[in-house]
């Protein structure tokens, strides 16, 4: 019963999000991320991949949920749809990394260490990711994600319209998703 109520809440947030409510969307993403993370960690553990990789999978799943949300039938419950996306992305991404399953023991030990290590590699990641984006997108991503500036303020700073910023942001997210699957290929 509790799960049903939760799912109903998620679905209503998603409906608002699809109608353009950014706050509801933020709530939804924050609410589902811990569940996705648990699944990703479980799978990565099973395959002997480090926890930092699980976080990559989490992000890949979040991007997939975002870019494919038009495939959710709003008349249906949201939970099964999310689970299907997570399952597909997990299988996909672990399969692509699959050849790398023999992770050296040192790496596994390293992954058990503090979060600090994770955040260091995170920082390298974002520089690499930003390096791949072209300019209006790069500045917009940096401004909104890291500096936490709103779309409107970002638009003002860049002397762009809000619509142009949103278009650019959408392209950047698509590029990020492509970047993730490409990188998984390199590793695989």
């Amino acid at each position: 019963m509790k799960n049903l109520a939760r799912e109903e809440e998620w679905a209503s947030w998603m409906r608002s999000a699809m109608a353009g409510d950014s706050k509801a969307y933020h709530k939804l993403l924050n609410a589902i991320t811990p569940y996705i993370r648990v699944m990703a960690r479980k799978r990565c553990e099973q395959f002997g991949a480090p926890a930092s990789e699980a976080e990559d999978v989490v992000q890949e799943v979040l991007l997939a949920i975002h870019l494919k949300r038009g495939t959710w039938d709003i008349a249906r419950p949201l939970g099964p749809w999310i689970s299907a996306i997570v399952r597909n992305k997990l299988i996909d991404s672990l399969r692509r990394r699959g050849r790398n399953i023999n992770v050296p023991l040192e790496d596994v030990i390293a992954s058990l260490e503090s979060d600090e290590r994770v955040s260091v590699s995170d920082r390298i990641d974002i520089e690499r990711i930003l390096g791949r984006l072209k300019d209006p997108q790069r500045t917009i991503v940096r401004s909104i994600s890291i500096e936490g500036v709103s779309v409107r303020q970002t638009a003002e700073q860049l002397k762009m319209t809000e619509v142009a910023v949103r278009v650019s942001l959408h392209r950047a997210l698509k590029a990020l998703a492509a970047f993730y699957s490409e990188r998984a290929n390199e590793n695989g």
């Binding site: 999000a17 353009g20 409510d21 950014s22 706050k23 969307y25 933020h26 993403l29 924050n30 991320t33 992000q59 979040l62 991007l63 975002h66 974002i126 991503v141 909104i144 994600s145 890291i146 936490g148 709103s150 779309v151 949103r166 278009v167 942001l169 959408h170 950047a172 997210l173 990020l176």
Partner: peptide, 11 residues
């Protein structure tokens, strides 16, 4: 950070 970014793409 990624969540912040995604939540702003409300098109």
């Amino acid at each position: 950070d990624l969540i912040n970014l995604i939540a702003q793409d409300t098109r």
